[in-house]
């Protein structure tokens, strides 16, 4: 529930810190911190599939 912010009501003028670079989720390589090639090594990190084209089609 804490993640849903059901009781949160933070006015825009108090959002300076949470709007800084590094405090927002983004796909930008400059502003974010994701390693794009990582799901190749850690298959459970992929957002979907996993072995869609991982050569594991023989397994199913």
């Amino acid at each position: 529930m804490i993640f849903l912010g059901g009781c949160a009501n933070v006015p825009v003028y108090e959002q300076g810190l949470v709007s800084k670079v590094g405090m927002t989720r983004t796909d930008s390589m400059v502003q974010g911190d994701r390693v794009n090639l990582l799901p190749q090594i850690e298959p459970g990190s992929a957002i979907s599939g996993g072995s869609v084209a991982a050569g594991c089609s023989v397994c199913r």
Partner: peptide, 18 residues
């Protein structure tokens, strides 16, 4: 695939994403 997500400013210092 289906993805459902939510992002919230919880306090002036905390932001969440699920």
């Amino acid at each position: 695939s289906v993805s459902i997500s939510t992002e919230n400013v919880l306090t002036p210092r905390v932001r969440s994403y699920v």
